[in-house]
């Protein structure tokens, strides 16, 4: 099978500064200031064509960072990322221009994705229909509700027919009917053999949809395997983790970090 995503030893470092002054000084003087924070450290992971992979983990485990890196939005600090084909990331806060109408936003977004005039003309009706925005499509986006915005963003990303689709918590907005419809579209993609990555806290959706699960913990890979194998382990862990006190959580975290740094 063809390997479409290969992530090798990838780390993502953010530098945390105490104040803006420190940030500026760090740019100017050679001495290093600020505290390093690794959103991801030494992550390895591979996906083959047609894989449907779920990213799970507690808050701050690096799920979104990893999906952003795969989507080519955020650069990695070190390591290698190879992605074959074009990716499309669907996130709740998809970049729309508030001053333009929904229709203009569709055209603008498609232009930026490299479509030409004719292709845009063809895609536009499908996107509008899928978004169910109807007469709101010619209203400025700033008048939209958050559900409408995410529906529009979702419709654009889904209809451009990407090779790799990354969905970051985007299905949790919008009503049940739209979520159903989106899931149907996902299934269609699944049948077409497209690679998909799901980032979600909803284990139910994961179980139903994904084949493999990547379990991230504080920026490292805890486990990667089949759904049937990982999800029960994760559920068990979550139950334990939920009942920990803050100190226990911190201790647990430090222990993991120590293991990674060794």
């Amino acid at each position: 099978m063809e390997k479409v995503i290969s992530v090798k030893n990838v780390s993502k470092k953010y530098i945390l500064y105490r104040n803006p002054k420190e940030r500026l000084l760090d740019l100017i003087i050679p001495k290093k200031l600020g505290e390093d924070f690794f959103a991801l450290s030494h992550v390895d992971f591979e996906a083959y064509k047609g894989d449907i992979i779920g990213f799970i983990g507690t808050n701050g485990s690096g799920k979104s960072t990893l999906s952003n890196i795969i989507a080519g939005i955020v650069p990695e600090s070190s390591g290698q990322v190879n992605v074959k084909g074009n990716t499309s990331l669907i996130a709740v806060a998809s970049g729309l221009n508030n001053d333009l109408t929904g229709r203009d936003n569709i055209e603008l977004k498609l232009l930026m994705l490299g479509f030409n005039k004719k292709e845009i003309k063809e895609l536009e009706p499908d996107i509008i229909k899928f978004s169910e925005l109807e007469k709101f499509i010619d209203q400025p986006v700033k008048s939209y509700s958050s559900g409408m915005k995410s529906r529009l963003g979702f419709s654009i990303s889904v209809n451009v027919d990407p090779d790799i689709l990354i969905i970051d918590e985007a299905l949790s907005v919008g009503d049940k009917a739209f979520a159903e419809k989106s899931l149907r579209k996902m299934r269609e993609f699944k049948e077409k053999g497209k690679t998909m990555i799901f980032v979600s806290h909803s284990l139910g959706q994961m179980k139903e949809f994904c084949e493999k699960i990547l379990w991230l913990e504080f920026g490292t890979v805890r486990a990667f395997g089949d759904v049937e194998e990982i999800i029960p382990q994760y559920e068990q862990f979550i139950n334990k983790y939920k009942n920990m006190s803050q100190e226990q959580k911190n201790e647990y975290r430090n222990e993991i970090m120590r293991k990674v740094n060794e």
Partner: peptide, 18 residues
């Protein structure tokens, strides 16, 4: 260049729409 031309039109539009 095509993209520059098209995007600049949207730029004008979005600046003056309101």
């Amino acid at each position: 260049f095509y993209l520059i031309r098209r995007l600049s039109l949207y730029e004008l539009k979005s600046n003056n729409k309101s």
